[in-house]
């Protein structure tokens, strides 16, 4: 399967009062044709910053300091603002964590969706309106004609998120970035939003980059998973391999740290805390929390090694076979 977008060695730095912070340290991954790639990690792991970097929307004091983001033969890291503006909202779209605040409270929901068709497809107002209602129906909003005339505050959280998804898919993008799309929604609403994403991704052919901290969401929704810790990519694997044979010590700890609803197993918190990124050692940023740490881990960042087909891990202990993958 070919890649829709290839992110290579992307780094993002933020200038703070206390010095420079490298929020993303050389992250590499690709999102393939028609797949859902999960990007997981704790708060502060750099997953949302990575997504903003793909859209080139990092705000000061942050900046993209290196790497390439290749979409359809163009490197977004090198494009000018005018050209980027043509990519955003058409080829790459985004669904955010707070659907209610992402919608304009002063314009009807139907009008907001219709404007996309006027802006990006050049449709007339009447045609755009018709297409907007079709989109609302497609994302499962009941009585779309009546609902199109309503405002965001008249929609529940789950319905707002459906509108966001309709807007994100309106321009038939190649890549949809969904940043914690179900956080803050009730379980049953969340389950239906994920079903919708899966189904529409499949039907429209859009690839999805799904950012989440919930391993349950990853297991039920994604094809492949990329795990981030403190700004570094530590493991990329097909979803089954990640849960059956997690390799990186961080991934292993993460999988064991969650309470399970499906079975009664002991829960072990991840040792230590996410390290401060100020004056952090150049090597692996999990070194301070890792049971297999050795001196070179702190000095030189381990590269990604393929330990099984399509299963990449950045860890010396796994490379050397000291930490056997179970």
């Amino acid at each position: 399967m070919s890649a829709v977008i290839e992110v290579r060695d992307v780094s993002v730095r933020f200038a703070t009062d206390f010095g420079e912070v490298e929020a993303v340290d050389g992250a590499s991954f690709e999102v393939r044709e028609g797949e859902i790639l999960g990007l997981v990690g704790e708060s502060g792991s750099g997953k949302s910053v990575t997504a903003t970097a793909i859209l080139r929307l990092i705000r000061r004091p942050g900046r993209l300091t290196g790497g390439s983001i290749v979409l359809g033969g163009r490197d977004l890291a090198r494009l000018g603002e005018d050209e980027l503006q043509k990519v955003r909202g058409t080829e790459i779209t985004m669904v955010s964590q707070t659907p209610r605040t992402a919608l304009n409270p002063l314009i009807t929901v139907g009008e907001q969706v219709a404007r996309l068709f006027v802006l990006h497809a050049g449709l007339s107002k009447a045609d755009a309106r018709k297409r907007a209602i079709e989109m609302l129906a497609m994302v499962g909003i009941p009585e779309p004609e009546r609902r199109a005339r309503q405002y965001a505050h008249q929609f529940s959280g789950g319905m707002c998120q459906r509108v966001m998804i309709a807007m994100a898919l309106a321009t038939s993008p190649r890549l949809l970035i969904a940043d914690e799309p179900t956080t803050g929604l009730d379980v049953s609403t969340a389950a239906r939003i994920l079903d919708l994403l899966r189904d529409l991704g499949h039907r429209t052919g859009a690839s999805i980059l799904l950012i989440t901290h919930d391993l349950g969401v990853v297991a039920t929704t994604c094809h492949r998973v990329a795990v981030m810790h403190a700004g570094q990519m530590v493991e990329v694997a097909p979803v089954r391999a990640l849960f059956a044979h997690p390799a990186h010590p961080y991934t292993r700890a993460l999988v064991r740290s969650i309470p399970r609803i499906d079975c009664e197993v002991a829960m072990e918190p991840i040792p230590g805390a996410v390290p401060s990124l100020l004056n952090i050692a150049p090597g692996c940023r999990y070194a301070g929390r890792c049971p297999w740490v050795e001196e070179r881990c702190r000095q030189i960042k381990p590269g990604m090694t393929e330990i099984a087909p399509d299963h990449l891990v950045a860890c010396y202990a796994v490379e050397d076979g000291r930490a056997r993958v179970v």
């Binding site: 049953s188 969340a190 391993l215 039920t220 089954r240 849960f243 999988v255 969650i258 399970r260």
Partner: peptide
């Protein structure tokens, strides 16, 4: 039953109960 069926289980091979309530 519907509430439990909606919880995403961190196991890609888990069988999901397709029991869903309609509406809100």
């Amino acid at each position: 039953r519907a509430l439990l069926a909606a919880v995403p289980v961190p196991d890609p091979d888990a069988r999901r109960d397709p029991f869903v309530l309609s509406g809100e």
